[in-house]
Design a protein around this nucleic acid. Structure first.
Lengths: 214, 214
DNA sequence: CATGCGTGTTACTTGCGGTAACACTACTGT
DNA sequence: ACAGTAGTGTTACCGCAAGTAACACGCATG
């Protein structure tokens, strides 16, 4: 049990793990988030217990799978957020990056947002807050950090930044989800409308005649 | 089979249905959204097939249950949205109403937002867009309508209003979800921060020294 | 050659959604 | 009074998916 041997084994295990994840990916892409462990195992050319040895349980596999996609998406978003351009342009480009991603692979998106909740009677005792897609949380925190780093928000800036980070991400997510379902307009229009919202056009808009206004 | 008799039966069936829904409610409140049909039937003092005769399948029961809560919440929100006050006050009061509701009954909230996805291999063929909590969609549409009715948004106002409706609802939802999990500040502070975001403080904020600004 | 250990399998248990087939009750028409 | 029938309930089952136990092969090491 030298280090070399162990490294070999670990390396092989890691490769196997990657292969399994790729197979799982294909199945999820095909069958949606309720893909069965059997189906995934079959796609990988093996049987269930191996999956369980690698990932513990379904939640573990899904978490690993989600982490891959989440990391990839977050990288794109960071790039858009860090581009050399003015604030409005960056916001629009970040929104567009996100929307392009969910548009390109809706099944993956769906999987990330609704991780199938861990079925049966086990593990039922978790509190509100740990459930909803970790992707949203991570995006929110990430954005909060960027906001807090770069904007001068006065006192309590950290807390404000976090609220805004999660709020903006939620806005993006919900609007994107709705848009993906109904396709009421082009992506560019959606991006513009959302940026306008963030730019205060809601507060600036005039009332319509009659009534005290919204 | 006169009308009277039929009405009697229907009335009784309706009462039964309400009782069943209340039992289901209790169980969901206790066990979370993955409450089993067996558990619900037991709570109602009956057995599974009766539930199925009343609601068709689990999705039907959950839809009925969700409709009750959704309607109730939407009523509160409409009231806040229609109060006689200026725009900012109404926005804040609506946000606060929503947050108070999810704070008061997190299990119900969780159930509404993550309706457990309809398990097995059946009905798997639905497209993205029909999945995520119908509550969010309904709130988004409702808010869009209010916005479009009362604000003068220039051309394309209807589409803009819908984008904003869903976007704002998503912002509220994501921020609320995060807040409910971490409780980083008081409800009032959260409301204020979100309203500030909608009022364009993001665009108005100055850059921090160093770097081109976010 | 025996002894492990990693990798794979088959075959099982448990628990859930959903259904079929059978009982009991009560109200109808003749 | 009695057969028919509609509604309400039950038990017992099917199919299926998550997860596990126990066994079988390959291969390096003492």
């Amino acid at each position: 049990m030298d280090t070399t041997q162990r490294t070999d084994q670990q390396r092989s295990a890691d490769r196997r793990r990657r292969e399994l994840l790729e197979a799982a990916d294909r199945v999820v892409l095909r069958d949606g988030p309720q893909a069965s462990m059997n189906a995934i195992a079959a796609e990988a050319g093996i049987t269930k217990p191996i999956l369980y040895r690698h990932f513990g349980d379904k939640g573990g596999l899904y978490a690993a799978l989600a982490k891959r996609h989440t990391d990839a998406l977050l990288d794109s978003l960071r790039a858009a957020l860090d581009a050399p351009a003015d604030r409005r342009e960056r916001v629009e480009s970040t929104l567009d990056t996100y929307l392009a991603a969910i548009e390109a692979r809706p099944q993956v998106y769906r999987f990330l947002m609704h991780p199938a909740e861990a079925g049966q009677s086990t593990d039922q005792g978790f509190d509100v807050g740990l459930h909803s897609a970790p992707l949203l949380r991570r995006m929110g925190e990430e954005l909060a950090q960027v906001i807090e780093e770069r904007l001068d928000l006065g006192p309590n800036s950290q807390q404000l930044a976090r609220v805004w980070g999660h709020g903006i991400v939620g806005m993006m997510h919900a609007a994107g989800d709705w848009w993906l379902g109904e396709r009421p307009c082009s992506r560019a229009e959606l991006v513009r409308s959302l940026a306008d919202l963030l730019w205060g056009r809601l507060a600036a808009a005039g009332d319509k005649m009659g009534g005290p206004g919204f």
